[in-house]
């Protein structure tokens, strides 16, 4: 149902639009950073680092608009929860952007004539992390608590992926000591992707609260345990 004061709806609509836009930028930053890594493309990596500034700018805009809505519209109940969630989600998405930027920063450092084999398994993990980000933000746009729950549950798979990549990379370092410097960077890349998944999980938890008014941890679980962050 619409608000009696129509301008309120357009404010909230704009806030949602900014969050989607930010999420889209963060998601593509992850993809592009990984592409730059794959192709050893420092120019593309530089582009990712530059694009991070627009994510930061949108975060500032979300903050401004959210404060304005709280001051001028005094939102209540689900409206209030949504504005607060938007404010918090913007900060988290900004962090996700920073992780993508950090991956891009490592591209010039990993550059080498010979390709390090384990690089080929990272894009699949990156796709999974990017998908979690997109799904969490889609859940926000649709105010869909069930979809948010699925994002949280999918984090376990990403964590497993990280564990297996970690083992692969360590094995690679043991067998090819000359590549330790470069592979260490790949370890950080994998860790960054794992952290992106954690942040997407946080976004999903905020979406769940905004949509239902209850914390995900307090929900009635039909015998199913919550995913515990293993690290």
């Amino acid at each position: 149902m619409e608000h009696t004061v129509k301008a309120f709806d357009s404010d909230i609509g704009r806030l949602r639009g900014l969050i989607s836009q930010m999420g889209g930028l963060a998601e593509s930053a992850i993809g592009q950073a990984m592409q730059a890594l794959q192709r050893s493309d420092p120019a593309l990596a530089a582009q990712v680092r530059a694009a991070d500034k627009s994510i930061d700018a949108i975060e500032a805009e979300v903050e401004r608009l959210a404060v304005q809505i709280i001051a001028l519209r005094a939102p209540m109940a689900n409206d209030l929860r949504e504005v607060v969630a938007a404010l918090k989600i913007a900060a988290v998405v900004e962090r996700i952007g920073d992780y993508a930027k950090n991956i891009a920063k490592r591209v010039p450092l990993i550059e080498s004539k010979q390709r390090i084999e384990p690089v080929s398994i990272l894009p699949a993990m990156a796709r999974m992390a990017g998908e979690m980000v997109r799904n969490a933000l889609d859940a926000f746009a649709a105010r869909d608590a069930e979809a948010a729950l699925r994002v949280v549950e999918s984090d376990a798979a990403l964590d497993d992926f990280y564990d297996s990549i970690f083992r692969t990379l360590v094995t690679h370092m043991v067998e090819n000591p000359k590549t330790i410097g470069q592979v260490a960077h790949l370890l950080f890349v994998a860790k960054n992707l794992e952290r992106i998944g954690d942040h997407a999980t946080n976004v999903a938890e905020m979406v769940y609260f905004a949509a239902t008014g209850t914390q995900m941890a307090d929900r009635d679980r039909g015998g199913q345990a919550t995913q515990q962050e293993p690290r």
Binding site: M1, E2, H3, T4, V5, F8, R73, P75, M76, A77, N78, D79, L80, R81, G213, T214
Partner: peptide, 17 residues
């Protein structure tokens, strides 16, 4: 005011009617 149970309460306090 943060999490009303009834839809009608929610619509009223959020300024929908």
């Amino acid at each position: 005011f943060t999490n009303p149970r009834a839809e009608r309460t929610k619509d009223y306090i959020t300024g929908r009617y």
